[in-house]
């Protein structure tokens, strides 16, 4: 089994120290986290981690079970790129003069779907969202005109096959939830365990 890119989605309680508890599950096996996003979900008190790693599916599935084993983790899923819709946000700071003088830059930005989020006398900040290659391409294109600063966010991803997590969460509240919520990770994998 060869290594490939997986996006791990983890639903957790909002708890101090949980980031560390999840991070060490990767670092323990010397796995580099390529991208990590953590933010509140649509459900109050529930947080969502989106983690990108390069690993074999065998290892990723074991990691997910070890993550889900943590007391304050509600669910962990892993998906390949074709199972998710994902985006990264990027900000580019360029000299305002360069934009004003070189019309070409403006056209370039339009071509890449960039949007100005701040325009000052000396600099302008553009923003794009997209896949890694798209933002990389715009960096390359802007470099000759003087890119002052660049920053990229972590990946955020929606799982294509997901159902309403809010409903599932309600089930978690019950002491004796239905089988649907406490599905057997191991046993259901023959079907579609990690696809919600």
């Amino acid at each position: 089994m060869s290594k490939r890119e997986f996006t791990v989605t983890v639903y957790t309680e909002n708890q101090v120290g949980l980031l560390n508890r999840i991070a060490i599950i990767f670092s323990r096996r010397k796995i580099n986290v390529e991208s990590l996003n953590t933010s509140p979900t649509e459900v109050e008190s529930v947080h969502r981690f989106t983690i990108v790693i390069n690993e074999t599916e065998e290892v990723v599935s074991k990691l997910c079970r070890q993550i889900e084993k943590q007391v304050e983790v509600l669910k962990a899923y892993y998906n390949t790129e074709d199972e998710i819709v994902w985006q990264e946000l990027a900000l580019y700071k360029v000299s305002t003069d360069a934009i004003a003088e070189k019309v070409k830059v403006e056209r370039l930005l339009r071509e890449y779907g960039a949007r100005a989020v701040a325009i000052r006398k000396d600099y302008t900040v553009f923003e794009t969202t997209g896949h890694r290659e798209e933002t990389d391409n715009l960096i390359k294109a802007l470099e000759p005109y003087g890119l002052i600063e660049f920053v990229r966010s972590a990946r955020v991803a929606i799982i294509k096959g997901s159902s309403d997590f809010h409903e599932r969460l309600k089930e978690f509240e019950y002491k004796e939830p239905g089988e649907e919520v406490v599905e057997n990770e191991f046993l259901d994998k023959k079907e579609e365990v990690f696809s919600m």
Partner: peptide, 17 residues
Amino acid sequence: CEHIRSYRPNPIVRKEF
């Protein structure tokens, strides 16, 4: 304490297995 929503110490046993 008898229940933590993110913690399932006693899984429901699946008969088929």
